[in-house]
Amino acid sequence: MTTPVLAIEHLHVELPVRAEMRTVLHDVSLTIGPSEALGLVGESGSGKSMTARSIMRLLSPGASTTGTILFEGVDVLTMHHDALLAFRRKGVAMIYQDPRAHINPVRTIGDFLTEGILLDGSVSTAEAQAKVISLLDEVGIPDAKRRLRQYPHQLSGGLLQRVMIAAALSEEPRLLLADEPTTALDVTTQEEVMAILDQLRVERSLAMLFITHDLDLAAAVSDRVAAMYAGVIIEVGDAASLHTDSLHPYTVGLLDSRPEFGARVRARPIPGRPILASEAPPGCVFAERCPYVTERCRSERPILREVDGRLVACHRAEELRGTISFAGAQEPR
C-alpha cells in the first residue's frame, strides 16, 4: 500500500473561547490517497472548515491539538518553522469560499498570482508571468495579459474564483484543500468553476479534500465522501454508494432533507437542531436527534468501524441497514 498523501489520525482540537477551552473536533481520522478526492460534508459548524484549517495549521494561537496530521508521512502539527513554510508553499494549496476576501485588494491579479512562484527566487519575473498566463488560459480566463494588470475589484466572483484556482495550482501542490469553493458563486458559474476545478485536478492527478454542504456535488466530484457531525466523522464511504447505501442515520437524514425537483415528496428535515462539538454528550453525538437511539447510544460513543467496505460510527449500523427513515420522527421536546 502506498503512503496516503494525507492521513489524519485521532485529531482532537480545542479552541479558547473566553478563557475556556471548547472542543471543536473530536477524534477525527481521515485518509486521502494519491490523486484521490475526498468529499467532506456536514452542516454549518460541524467542523469541516476547522479540519482544513488544522491541516494548514491556521488555528488561532492558544488552540490545543492532539493526534497527528501526516502529510506524506510527516506530521504537520510538529513541523518546525521552515518545514511548515515549505509545506505550505509546495505541498498543499487552498481554495476558499470567498475569493474576494482572500486576495489583497490593493495588489494586481498579476502580483497575487506570481507572488508564490517568485518566492524561492529560482524563477525570473518573466518566466513567472508566462507560467501564470498559461494557467489563466487553463482555467478559462481569456485575455490573461490584461487581467494580470487588473485589480480584484475589477473581476467578477466567478473570474476571481478561477484566479484562485490558478493560484492554487501554480505551485504544483500534491494536495488541494477546497473549502466550499463554489458556495459564494451563482448556480451557473458554480457549475463552470466546478468543472474546471475537477478537470484540472484529474489532469494533474492531485489529491483533494473537498469541503461542501452539497451532498450531490460532493458525490459527483469525489471518490469517497465523509460525513461530519458535531466535530465527529460519522461515516465514510465511496461516493457512488452514498445515495443508495448510507449506513448512518444522520447521513440518511441529510439525504432526505434535500428538496427534490419534480418529486411530490416534501423534503424531510432532521428534527432538532445541530449541536456544537462542544455540546457533544458522552455517547453518540447524534443521539439527541436519532429516532433509533438506544441506551447504549447515550452512554457509549460509537467509534468509526468498518461495515461492508464502508466506515460508520453507529452501534446499530448492520441492524438498521436499509430501513432508516425520518418519516415518523417527532420534534424532540
Binding site: M56, R88, V92, A101, I103, G116, L119
Partner: peptide, 9 residues
C-alpha cells in the same frame, strides 16, 4: 487575504 498569504507559504 493575510491568511491566504500564510497558506501560500
Amino acid at each position: 487575504y493575510v491568511e491566504s498569504c500564510q497558506v501560500v507559504g
